[in-house]
């Protein structure tokens, strides 16, 4: 089973990289964008014998303890 984890800065935290990308996009003609946030993406493959619930528990723990710094970041994930 594969988990896809998305990490991004919390809404309350200013994202200077996202802002810079947004600015550049406007400069080359993409005027309809209201905001850009930059983040990180992880693909994690689990051993096939694990159940979906077991994978879910593992992913939550990995995302909380390692992939994010909870002071500034949040995460979401999908399991497929």
């Amino acid at each position: 089973m594969r988990a896809r984890v998305y990490v991004s800065l919390k809404k309350s935290v200013l994202d200077p990289q996202g802002k810079t990308i947004h600015h550049s996009l406007e400069n080359i003609g993409f005027q309809q964008i209201t905001e850009v946030r930059q983040g990180k993406f992880f693909e994690i493959d689990f051993a096939p014998e694990l159940t979906r619930e077991e994978v879910r528990a593992e992913v939550e723990k990995i995302a909380k303890d390692v992939l994010t710094n909870p002071v500034i970041e949040e995460f979401s994930y999908r399991i497929e």
Partner: peptide, 16 residues
Amino acid sequence: LESGLLPGAMLRNRGL
């Protein structure tokens, strides 16, 4: 900071 021995976190410098 990452170890939790001190509070808070670091972001990229304001000027990138």
